[in-house]
């Protein structure tokens, strides 16, 4: 390992940790927290943590995080995926306890707020991506088709979550939130460019193969 590679690894991790730590630190200092119940505070933070996980999740899948090459990255990717599902479950359950009618409106797409729609769509896309991850080893889908399906669901999660977060007036600081969201979009776009999940998904389709 050359010095340049080590320096790049340190800088890369430092940047990611700085962005996530700043987002969490600013949210923890919000004046709104004092007017909320512990359950609501925990639910809100679960949402912030989920957004932070979305930053590293695509990078882990492509082995782009310094020190975590593809194979190791994918192993961590599975666990951060589980953490992401748990964080979103805590977010939804906690907000449901804090204000049942508001959560019911959101889940039934009858809320007055547009961000609820984005959030709930992202949640179901996350469920789809997680279920796909669960059945991957069964090989019920060809690898290329599985990858396209998982990446499509992940893209909906990313776009939905970023729109959800940006439209919300909550504990997150507007600058740190915008920076985090921009980087989440960036890391996902970088991953899509690297993985090219659309490549081969149609080419190897049984009907196409005969041609």
């Amino acid at each position: 390992m050359t010095l340049a590679v080590v320096c790049r690894a340190i800088l890369g991790w430092a940047a990611i940790i700085a962005v996530i730590a700043t987002a969490l630190f600013v949210a923890a200092g919000s004046s709104y927290l004092q007017y909320r119940t512990p359950v609501y505070v925990a639910a809100g933070f679960a949402g912030v943590v989920a957004l932070c996980l979305l930053l590293v999740q695509p990078l882990l899948a492509t082995g782009m995080l310094p020190g975590l090459p593809l194979r190791a990255g994918r192993r961590v990717h599975r666990w951060t995926g589980v953490a992401l599902v748990l964080a979103v479950a805590m977010h939804v359950a906690g907000l449901g306890i804090a204000s049942p009618p508001d959560m019911l409106d959101a889940l039934t797409f009858t809320a007055p707020t547009l961000f609820s729609v984005f959030g709930v769509v992202a949640m179901w896309a996350l469920v789809a991506a997680a279920l796909l991850a669960g059945v991957r080893k069964r090989r019920s889908l060809r690898p290329q088709a599985w990858r396209l399906a998982h990446c499509t669901a992940a893209a909906v999660v990313v776009v939905g979550s970023v729109a959800h977060a940006m439209l919300i007036e909550g504990t997150m600081g507007s600058v740190s939130k915008t920076l985090l969201c921009a980087l989440v979009i960036g890391s996902s776009a970088l991953t899509a460019a690297r993985l090219r999940p659309w490549a081969g998904a149609w080419r190897a389709w049984p009907g196409q193969a005969r041609k």
Binding site: S99, P101, D102, D105, T110, A111, P112, T113
Partner: peptide, 8 residues
């Protein structure tokens, strides 16, 4: 009536 108006 507005959406969510009657909540809580």
């Amino acid at each position: 009536s507005m959406r969510g108006g009657a909540n809580n």
